[in-house]
């Protein structure tokens, strides 16, 4: 579904990604794991066109995204849950969700999708008239995921869903992500909470200093010595 081929990118003269290739197939949940500063967020910014790739191609369902501006990426079926949620703090929860379905194509199915998001996150329904900025961290994450789902995406990008959340909330959020995967969404997660994320996804890529170091089935990686020693401290 999503394919990156030899993608390089950076900020000014600083190169953050080198020759990254990866693939996400329909129905799959894939994680990109790695330590701080490995280039994970940069990778997502390239996919969502907030940052241009200096080399290589990104394609969605066979169509290259090279000339697609940032605001049209979502029309190709890619919705993003940005790091630190990036909700619209002064709008209410429901207005935030409404904005997620901003695309003309999504507006027709607004009521139906809102119902779906509320069934997934009943808490959001309780809080729908509240300003999003006043939600707790976990609730904000739910709202951000809900907002992304409102466009009816084919592929959901999650950037560090565990960032800034208490451990018990992180557990709950990963539980929700597992449910979203079970609903049949294709998901690409970028995450440094490696132990947790590998329990949720099917496959993973390990990104280190801008390069893909290794990849494989989540269970294999979780059991591999390399990951256990370097990242899980076992």
């Amino acid at each position: 579904m999503l394919r990156l081929e030899n993608v390089s990118a950076g900020y000014g003269s600083f190169q953050a990604l080198f020759d990254v290739s990866l693939e996400v197939n329909g129905g799959e949940s894939v994680a990109v794991i790695g330590p701080n500063g490995a280039g994970k967020t940069t990778l997502l910014r390239v996919i969502s066109k907030l940052l241009p790739a200096s080399a290589g191609t990104v394609s969605m369902e066979g169509w290259p995204l090279n000339d697609v501006p940032a605001h049209q990426v979502i029309a190709r079926g890619i919705a993003q849950v940005p790091e630190n949620r990036r909700l619209f703090p002064k709008l209410t929860v429901e207005e935030n969700l409404k904005m997620g379905g901003f695309l003309a194509a999504a507006r027709a199915r607004y009521a139906e999708r809102l119902e779906f998001v509320y069934s997934l996150f009943p808490r959001m329904k309780e809080r729908r008239a509240q300003a999003a900025g006043t939600l707790s961290g976990g609730e904000q994450q739910m709202c951000a995921i809900g907002r992304a789902l409102m466009s009816g995406p084919k592929l959901l990008l999650l950037d560090e869903p565990s960032a800034g959340l208490a451990p018990v909330v992180v557990q709950a959020i990963f539980g929700l992500i597992r449910r979203i995967c079970a609903e049949g969404y294709t998901v690409l997660i970028v995450e440094q909470n490696i132990r947790q994320v590998l329990k949720v996804v099917d496959r993973a890529y390990l990104l280190e200093t801008g390069r893909i170091k290794t990849s494989g089935a989540a269970a294999t990686l979780l059991a591999s010595d390399e990951i256990r020693k370097a990242y899980l401290g076992l």
Binding site: L50, V73, I74, A75, M99, F102
Partner: peptide, 15 residues
């Protein structure tokens, strides 16, 4: 209003 609060996020949802 969304744009004035979070411009990148606004672009990412198709605005």
């Amino acid at each position: 209003e969304a744009i004035s609060q979070e411009e990148d996020a606004a672009a990412s949802i198709g605005m």
